[in-house]
Amino acid sequence: MNPDLYLVLAAILFTVGLVGFIIRRNALILFMSTELMLNAANLVLVSSSWVQGKLDGQVAAFFVMVVAAAEVVVGLSLIVTIFRARRSTSVDSESLLKG
């Protein structure tokens, strides 16, 4: 199987994540989109680790997972705090700060 296809799939996943991040309005969905971007990067790391014949990429994928977990802790706590105060997770209702 052509290893380039993994890169194509990863690029598609990343684009889905980025487009989702731009067009969706729910903070949770935005957050999931950023996680999708991280996982697209993981796919690149693991597949090119195989292509390059080095395990560095696979080790890096573990780092990415740990970082993603840490991001979830901070991100979800922020989203939950805001939801409790406003009863909404839509990013459009967040409009106190304007210039």
């Binding site: 994540g17 980025l18 903070a27 950023t34 971007m37 993981n42 690149v44 890096a60 991100g75």
Partner: peptide, 23 residues
């Protein structure tokens, strides 16, 4: 929240770029 969401997207971009440079 704004800082977090945009920051998470930015670090996602940085990571994907780093992964491509590794590839």
């Amino acid at each position: 929240l704004k800082y977090f969401l945009l920051g998470a997207a930015a670090s996602g971009m940085f990571l994907f770029g780093a992964a491509l440079l590794f590839a």
